[in-house]
Design a protein around this nucleic acid. Structure first.
Length: 568
RNA sequence: CGGGGCGUAGCGCAGUCUGGUUAGCGCGCCUGCUUUGGGAGCAGGAGGUCGGGAGUUCAAAUCUCCCCGCCCCGACCA
């Protein structure tokens, strides 16, 4: 492709709206343009990369035995009512309505559609296992779209769904997808890692996310450098620290704390630190109130709590409920004498000696509280968000934190959807059983952004060759000079004939502009034809990821470029 | 939804506090000439309902009110 015949508009300045490198570079390199918040057009250069990633995904999915299909984006409301997610996913679903008033959902995901399909078409265990996938646009009404295509309202996703008849087979399907994902991200040049994850709205038994470590990632990953335990912070467990505490012998005292509600305010008032406080939070779990005790310097991990309680709906109780349970307004709840509500304590409170806590009376707190002496706590559990230095739940050594970008997520769904949507198969004995499902997603457009996050420098993108929009860039310094353009044209034709994807920068602009654009769009191999060629007959070949320049006659270029591309 | 910021030419910005000729700068764009190894030079040129509406005023990019859009943090979320 000649630069003058394609549509690559680069920008010199960072766009004002972009914050992270991939977003800035995708705009500057002319890969994407914004239509509105969270909505982007892919321009030719960006689309080429997207297609490369898709091609890798297709190859690996097909190799793993998955079958490509294409499902509708618009889905009937009825299907979502049957799965029970019409309510639960209400806030992220974009909806449409036909002239007749029929309600449709712009698919945020496709479990319902694919399970319904399988329910209709498959009836015997002999037809299983099956794994169906598609690469399609998904719609999610994100509360806050951000970072360009990293989190947008409309995005390209590869989603696969496996159906098996027994646990062993389901486990194999899961493992096959896990392995395929590992290969896909590797081929995209990504250093990705699998971490334990929360199943969230998808439900199911177990899930793992594929994370690309990046400072700009939206997720926090907890890692154990010793045993390799890795988990999303939403999921991460922790081992309790064995701490010896000295109980106070002093008795509980009531202290006036007018209008002091938060731990910070109280810590300042008592001139002490947050870890002396027993924080008492009242939640409503599927309509039932529950009191959670946690040390003042810790936060409740609501995913853990939801999982522990086995409930769907979990939110902090409203003021009225708090008043009813504690007899006090918001900010003065405490475990001493608290009755008529289930109390669950995070392990962190077990160590507090002479603690401070709410007195269940307005403007009053208690001091000298010994949790074992003064409160009747029957349930202790790990309910806290993991923090730097917490101990690994597997090996007990301190864990570290990293940030990451979630590019893929694999789930063991069990029979949640197959039961709801009657995807039943007969086993050998003729009995009907729900199919065992797994689902597997890759954010394709997000993967493109993640690749840039991991592969760029101050000048621009540095594509791994398998996903580069073109493999080779030919840069003619002064194409008006016939010797230069002749040699460049010759190379362009020769390399193209060899099957390489070549972009030929034939623009009549100054050398600096071309060099800078070349670095910006990040094509793996650059061939420069300029006055050195006129002088000495040599052209220059350089990899984007290296400073080394090879000078050689045009006749030797093809071989060197082929060799280089095989290495990048 | 709460907090903060922004909206002036395609892009990046100044001007707004303290109202006052014809709204500026850099880059980009168009024409011509000269240039061509890391964002060229000279000359000429085009391009703006200053996000929108209402108001105050002799006078509004600038002050007031309402609305819209965009970005960041939080809440939330694959």
């Amino acid at each position: 492709m000649r630069w003058t015949e394609t549509f690559i508009t680069t920008q010199r300045d960072d766009p004002q709206e972009a914050e992270i490198p991939s977003h800035k570079l995708m705009i500057r390199a002319g890969m994407i343009r914004k239509l509105a918040s969270g909505l982007y057009t892919f321009l030719p250069l960006g689309l080429r990369v997207l297609r490369k990633v898709e091609a890798i995904i297709r190859e690996e999915m097909n190799r793993a035995g998955a079958l490509e299909i294409l499902m509708p984006i618009l889905q009937p409301r009825n299907l979502w009512e049957r799965s029970g997610r019409w309510e639960g996913m209400d806030d992220i679903m974009l909806k449409a309505r036909t002239h007749q008033g029929r309600e449709l959902v712009l698919g945020p995901t496709h479990e319902e559609v694919v399970t319904d399909l399988v329910a209709r078409e498959i009836s015997s265990y002999k037809q299983l296992p099956k794994n169906l996938y598609q690469i399609n646009t998904k719609f999610r009404d994100e509360i806050r779209p951000r970072f360009g295509v990293m989190r947008s309202r409309e995005f390209i996703m590869k989603d696969a769904y496996s159906f098996d008849y027994d646990d062993a087979s389901a486990e194999r399907s899961y493992q096959q997808m896990f392995d395929a994902y590992t290969r896909i991200f590797e081929r995209c040049g990504l250093n990705a890692m699998a971490v334990e994850a929360d199943t969230g709205m998808m439900g199911g038994n177990r899930s793992q996310e594929f994370m690309v470590p990046a400072e700009t990632g939206e997720d926090a990953i907890v890692l154990c450098p010793e045993c390799g335990y890795a988990a999303n912070v939403e999921r991460a467990g922790r081992k309790e620290e064995p701490v010896r505490v000295t109980r106070t012998k002093q008795t509980i005292e009531e202290i006036d704390t007018p209008e002091l509600r938060t731990v910070e305010e109280l810590a300042a008032f008592f001139q002490t630190t947050a870890d002396r406080f027993i924080k008492t939070l009242i939640y409503t779990a599927d309509g039932e109130p529950v009191a959670i005790l946690i040390r003042g310097d810790r936060d409740v991990n609501e995913s853990k709590l939801r999982r522990f309680l086995g409930v769907e709906e979990l939110e902090l109780a409203d003021e009225e409920t708090i008043r009813k349970i504690t007899g006090a307004p918001l900010g003065f709840a405490g475990p001493v004498g608290l009755e008529g509500v289930r109390i669950i304590a995070d392990y962190s409170v077990a160590h507090i000696a002479a603690g401070i806590t709410g007195a269940n009376r307005k403007d009053t707190h208690l001091i000298n509280v010994n949790i074992d002496r003064d409160c009747a706590i029957r349930e202790y559990h790990d309910l806290a968000i993991a923090q730097e230095g917490d101990l690994c739940p597997r090996c007990g050594l301190p864990m570290t934190f990293r940030r990451g970008i979630e590019v893929g997520h694999v789930f063991k769904l069990g029979t949640k959807y197959s039961e709801a949507l009657s995807a039943m198969v007969k086993d050998e004995s003729g009995r009907e059983k729900p199919a065992i499902m797994g689902c597997y997603g890759i954010g394709v457009s997000r993967t493109v952004a993640a690749i840039i996050e991991q592969h760029h420098d101050e000048k621009g993108i540095i594509w791994p060759s398998p996903v580069a929009p073109y493999q080779v860039l030919i840069l003619a310094i002064n194409p008006a000079d016939e010797a230069v353009s002749g040699a460049a044209e010759g190379l362009y034709k020769e390399l193209t004939k060899k099957g390489m994807e070549v972009l030929y920068d034939d623009r009549p602009v100054s050398a600096g502009v071309k060099f800078n654009d070349s670095d910006l769009i990040g094509i793996s191999v650059r061939i420069t034809v300029g006055k050195k060629f006129i002088r000495s007959g040599g052209v220059e070949v350089k990899r984007r990821d290296s400073e080394e320049v090879h000078s050689l006659p045009p006749s030797e270029v093809t071989e060197l470029v082929e060799e280089m591309l095989s290495l990048i």
